[in-house]
């Protein structure tokens, strides 16, 4: 049961972000690109509060849903896979160094989303999918995306953290 819960929640987040993108009119957003990376956010939370030293549940979950995002929302496979993969691995390395609390998880989400989105921008820029400059990218896309993903974290954190720490405790016992 627990095995299916995490993919199900991530799938619902993935679907929710696409439905919300359709329903919220973009005239309301004033030319800014708010890109939700909520599957990445929940994978980071799992990685911090559930994964042990050598388990990769969060990483695998993130990679699977990165591929699903590539498949369903874009016509180029592999870009989200690379972005989410690198960003989750960096966080896997960093989480040994830092304590596991709320502030650190905000820092990790900011860092992870920034790495993933920069890689996604870089690859799309290389293959000619986007033509905007780096300065424009920072103001139009990166900053709004960081905001919307931290909002995602603020909603997901209180819902998932107690359950994850409980499961980890049961696992270690």
């Amino acid at each position: 049961m627990k095995i299916f819960l995490l993919p199900l929640v991530t799938l619902i987040l993935l679907v929710l972000q696409s439905v919300l993108t359709e329903v919220i009119p973009s005239s309301f957003l004033d030319g800014m690109l708010y890109i939700p990376h909520w599957p990445l956010v929940i994978s980071i939370i799992v990685m911090i509060f559930y994964d042990r030293e050598h388990s990769y549940v969060g990483l695998m979950n993130g990679l699977a849903f990165a591929f699903l995002t590539d498949l369903t929302f874009t016509s180029i496979l592999g870009v989200y896979l690379l972005g989410y993969g690198v960003s989750l691995y960096v966080i896997h390395l960093l989480k040994r160094v830092l304590h596991k609390n709320f502030l650190v998880s905000i820092v990790f989400v900011l860092l992870g989303v920034a790495i993933a989105d920069l890689i996604i921008f870089g690859v799309y820029f290389l293959i000619g999918q986007v033509m905007i400059g780096f300065q424009d990218y920072l103001t139009i896309r990166l900053v709004p995306s960081l905001i919307v993903n931290v909002i995602g974290l603020l909603i997901l954190y209180p819902l998932t953290k107690p359950m994850l720490t409980k499961w980890k405790y049961e696992l270690e016992k």
């Binding site: 679907v15 972000q17 696409s18 439905v19 993108t21 359709e22 690109l33 890109i35 939700p36 995002t69 369903t72 929302f73 874009t74 016509s75 989200y80 996604i120 799309y124 999918q129 986007v130």
Partner: peptide, 15 residues
């Protein structure tokens, strides 16, 4: 009916 839009806004795709 349009039910969703690609959350990657650089791909202007709807479902």
């Amino acid at each position: 009916t349009v039910i969703a839009r690609s959350s990657e806004r650089w791909f202007q795709q709807v479902t």
